[in-house]
């Protein structure tokens, strides 16, 4: 799977979970850049991403991401 495909899928998941159509994720996007991306919605996002890609992240991986780019790298290493 290409990196761009992952970004497209993530954009859809983020827009759906956070109910915000204008979201466009970039590698350096962080929770500070998106209003409703907080600790609670983060877990909902993770859960949806896992379902979509049929993968399972470890707690450490989830806690270590500092931006979307790092999240995408983890997904790339799994799919």
């Amino acid at each position: 799977m290409q990196e761009q495909e992952i970004y497209s899928a993530l954009n859809e998941i983020f827009r759906d979970v956070l109910d915000e159509e204008s979201i466009t994720l970039l590698p350096d996007t962080t929770a500070d850049d998106i209003e409703d991306w907080n600790s609670l919605s983060h877990i909902q996002l993770v859960s949806e991403i896992e379902k979509h890609f049929n993968i399972r992240f470890s707690s450490r991986e989830i806690m270590m991401w500092r931006n979307v780019g790092e999240m995408v790298q983890t997904i790339l290493s799994r799919v």
Partner: peptide
């Protein structure tokens, strides 16, 4: 406690959605 207790638990219970939270 949020970082070291709540977050790991919330991740662990993530399949139960709001009930897990």
């Amino acid at each position: 406690i949020t970082d070291y207790v709540f977050m790991p638990l919330n991740i662990l219970f993530r399949d139960y959605a709001r009930l897990g939270t």
